[in-house]
Design a protein around this nucleic acid. Structure first.
Lengths: 340, 340
DNA sequence: GCCTGGCACTCTGGCTGTGCGAGTGCCAGT
DNA sequence: ACTGGCACTCGCACAGCCAGAGTGCCAGGC
């Protein structure tokens, strides 16, 4: 039916206009700015139907219409083509990210880049420990009965813990411990490392068993506890751009939620590397994120997502652009981490 | 002269009232809320003088008076006693910071703590690399001609760099390199490490010289470049509390300045561990910080400041409270880092 | 049956004018 | 040197009003 089709076209036009102007859009303005081939009156009828179906709403009687969350959802699912980035933008990404010296550098550059590209708040998750593998384990002796354990993952993360041992340890024991640990764990996914500990206790030379037992307790704690999934956040200044308009009350709850991290981390955990995940307004099921949308995707080599990254902004955002930017940056970060 | 003294008393009263109520304070309100022993009319005369001297100003004719930056300065320098924290607060600090497992954990807990305590934006600097000493240097072989260098400082910072070598390296060379580097650098302040490199080149076994040369170039870069002085920032949500009132335009410039980090780092570089540094409004000589004050202090064992921490808030802040909190947290962080 | 132009209606936002209250500065008196 | 009194100045809040934008509905045309 040409009928329904035009109605969708009207919805698309409303979303586009509203996103770019930030004014509720009326039937007259619509017919002027878009070639819908029908008069404002007809558009009004369509709008009435769209409103009844819950895709748009009017803030006040006699103001224009505004897309609802449901309207944005339809737009994202059916009406928007992901627009490819311009060559200049691609080049900017490369220029910006090349030359990063370590993991933290890669991630903090990414966050700045993403914030700049999208003019939204950018969020980048550190590679999840559980999905990384051990590249190296280092044991440093700090004192007679105090060791420092340094874990280096294949994604470049470095984690350290201090361990107090019940008895003094001598230098050769430290060296042996290092060898034993590395033989046992290098190349092993952290998620599988737990299973290896019992074996290790059996196969280790007798004189090391006590030490290994002490150390592996701490190790397990470091590896298994996924609590420390860290986030880098940037571009919060972008929130204060159209603030009063976009976030009704204040942006405080949103800023708080971002700092809490836990909300964002939960979202990130649902992400995979192949499709861009969009959460719109109420869909986030979190009070502070009312009025906010979340565009995210996993990064990592094709088979497994090491972590996620994305942007947070008002529901009134340019979805195609944000989705494109997020995906492009994620791809590039994935490559960078794969080759280092 | 009892005259001048009372005038200062009036200024103090104005600052206190204004900070707590956020309303310009008038002569009548002053005489009611404080025991100044004189009538409003007299206070008016004093206020006229204070205004002439530039300590206070009135936003509009016939509104009360508001302290100027100069007024706050005088208040901080001469009129305020640093109020000691309550026992409960001290205990809260301990409870909050104990149990931190590594450097990042200590600092991010501190930032949260400080933000909560002061209800301002909190800023904590990572221990400056140049003032730290080498605890351990680790060399990990990633591939035949690719090494990873891991630097661990006595403050718990870990820095890593990947080095590509011109020729393949074998495992024994890696082990020797590790030994050589550690013998040479462990315990050395990073700021002094540069001088050691030439010696190292001479004393190293001949077959290692090439490798040492390659590696030390990267090493120098890591050590000397102080670019990577990192910051942890938290509590930005507190900016959005009284926002409209405290930061006239919007908080965007302030948020941008905080994310830039460079402005804050410059301030941090002036900090030492013994005195709390307060920068008020215009004193910051940075446009974005107009209307903002900065309270900071160095942390570290007594002799040297490892880094700085502080809070940023509106000039209209409770200086004594903030100064006390900042100092207390800095002390505690200093202890924690010293003993680890 | 769908689209269109016209019309009456509603509601918000901005503008103006007014009165009130808060606060000041000055002056004369103690 | 301090105090009480007084006239004056503004900003703010409130009410009333007007204009503009946008809608819904209806009757007529293709």
């Amino acid at each position: 039916m040409a009928h329904d089709e035009r109605r969708l076209e009207v919805l698309r036009a409303i979303v586009q206009d509203y996103v770019s102007t930030n004014d509720p859009v009326g039937s007259k303005a619509l017919s002027e700015r878009h070639d819908l081939g029908v008069s404002p009156a007809t558009i009004r009828n369509d709008m009435a139907v769209l409103e009844e179906q819950g895709y748009i709403a009017q803030p006040h009687t006699s103001a224009g219409r505004v897309p609802t969350d449901k309207g944005y959802r339809l737009f994202v699912d059916r009406l928007s083509a992901v627009k490819p980035l311009s060559v200049a933008e691609r080049r900017a990404i490369e220029r910006f990210l090349d030359g990063a010296v370590d993991l933290h550098d890669v991630l903090s550059r990414s966050v700045r880049l993403l914030a700049q590209l999208t003019r939204q708040v950018a969020v980048v998750q550190y590679p999840t420990l559980s999905r990384s593998a051990v590249r190296h384990l280092e044991v440093v002796q700090l004192a007679a009965a105090r060791l420092m354990l340094v874990l280096i993952t294949d994604t470049g993360r470095v984690e350290q813990r201090v361990v107090d041992t019940p008895v003094d340890v001598d230098a050769t024991a430290v060296a042996e411990l290092r060898t034993v640990l590395n033989c046992a764990f290098v190349g092993v996914r952290l998620v599988d490392a737990g299973d290896k500990v019992p074996d290790l206790l059996e196969t280790a030379p007798p004189q090391l068993r006590g030490l290994v037992a002490t150390v592996s307790a701490t190790l397990m704690e470091t590896l298994v506890e996924p609590s420390e999934d860290r986030l880098v956040i940037g571009g919060t200044a972008n929130l204060a751009r159209g603030s009063a308009l976009d976030f009704p009350g204040s942006l405080r709850p949103l800023l708080e939620a971002l700092e809490e991290q836990v909300v964002v981390l939960r979202l990130m955990s649902q992400v995979d590397a192949s499709t861009v995940l969009v959460r719109i307004g109420e869909e986030n099921a979190h009070e502070a994120l009312t009025g906010a949308s979340f565009v995210s995707v996993g990064y990592g080599s094709d088979d497994r997502a090491l972590g996620g990254l994305g942007v947070v902004g008002p529901t009134r955002m340019d979805y195609p652009m944000n989705m494109a930017a997020v995906r492009a940056v994620a791809r590039y970060v994935g490559h960078l981490l794969a080759e280092s």
